[in-house]
């Protein structure tokens, strides 16, 4: 990984840099598996190696792939980096050693999660029980973060489009995509399976790695695959922008409403125990619902982000296209 990181520093070709960053994400995901963090690895693989690489590639097609050679202030940068790095190394000197079981973090809070979560929540995947119940509010915050990003991207990139433009773009796209007939058919067959897999991940989060976030990303990936092969305007016909925005909002609301219902039932915010007559059943219901909330928002926002990037790109190509026409 150090090699990859240094290669990224040296490279000038942005395309290679982005690819290497993807590899870096994938490597860290495999490191997470080695460190027993399967849930995290799953997410990092989907996000670090998948979504973020994809987005960066889309942006590079618009901005050009070469980095200018000028590198300014490398010295001061080096200074800052050395000072911070030195401070960190200094800090590590008193750390508990890697892997040692008597470190404070393993002895203060986490034993309760490991020993009691089965009785208190009844879900084998401890990560899920901590995420969705003990620290449900953090996860709620996370959903709101992703929602914010979606709205932010919308605010910056969404374009009011005219009909005739749309049709013209569609015609350019069709000519582009017709060549990939085989891939299209394969993809059409694949997409239902991806959806199915997303649903499996969604429900499986209680027992193994997985859950709303990962399911949402996979679901969005299927849509993105479809968009890439069939063109944005076709995809827009299938999934309407207003509708997808609504889904994103509903996801957040669903999550929040679980909390509000528990308030109404006399518990604290996100106290799932009061959701059903039996505490364990209540916990199950609560986790199920919020995972759906997470899934909805994440899938919707990922699609929003991708659509808007791709939409900008089309507009950009379209403008270039018409400029070329004018000049010739």
């Amino acid at each position: 990984m150090v090699v990859v990181a240094i290669a990224i520093i040296r490279m000038k070709d942005l395309f290679a840099v982005v690819m290497l960053a993807g590899i870096y994400g994938l490597l860290s995901a495999s490191f997470f598996v080695a460190m027993d963090a399967v849930d995290v690895a799953f997410t990092e693989a989907a996000v670090g190696a998948g979504i973020s690489t994809l987005l960066m590639l889309v942006v590079i097609t618009m901005t050009g792939r070469d980095e200018k050679a000028t590198r300014h202030k490398p010295l001061s940068a080096l200074l800052i980096v050395t000072v911070t790095g030195g401070l960190l190394i200094y800090g590590t000197l008193d750390m508990p050693y890697f892997g040692s079981a008597d470190a404070p973090i393993h002895n203060h809070i986490s034993p309760r999660y490991i020993n009691d979560s089965m009785q208190e929540i009844g879900v084998p995947n401890i990560v899920t029980s901590v995420l969705a119940s003990y620290r449900a509010f953090d996860t709620f915050g996370e959903v709101v973060v992703i929602f914010t990003a979606g709205i932010g991207v919308l605010a910056m990139l969404s374009v009011g489009r005219r009909k005739e433009d749309d049709e013209e773009i569609a015609s350019i796209n069709d000519s582009m995509h017709e060549q990939h007939l085989v891939i299209r058919i394969v993809a059409k067959m694949l997409i239902p399976f991806i959806f199915l897999f997303a649903l499996y991940v969604q429900f499986h989060g209680d027992f193994g790695p997985g859950g709303g976030f990962q399911a949402g990303v996979i679901f969005a990936a299927a849509i993105i695959l479809y968009t890439m092969l069939f063109g944005l305007s076709t995809a827009r016909k299938v999934i309407n922008q207003t509708f997808i925005r609504l889904i994103a909002a509903i996801g957040v609301l669903l999550y929040g409403c679980v909390g509000i219902v528990s308030l109404a039932n006399g518990g604290n915010f996100f106290d799932y125990n009061v959701l059903a007559s039996d505490a364990i059943a209540g916990q199950h219901l609560g986790i199920l619902l919020i995972e759906w909330g997470v899934g909805c928002t994440v899938a919707a926002v990922m699609i929003i982000i991708f659509f808007n990037f791709a939409g900008r790109r089309e507009l950009y190509q379209h403008n270039k296209h018409s400029q070329n026409k004018e000049s010739s």
Binding site: V40, V47, M56, L131, A149, V153, I305
Partner: peptide, 24 residues
Amino acid sequence: NPLPHVLILTAIVVGIATTALGLS
């Protein structure tokens, strides 16, 4: 220890959100 895993799941999501906004 499951707790850092949970924290990092959240942080990854925050990271991608920042990247997406930055790219836009």
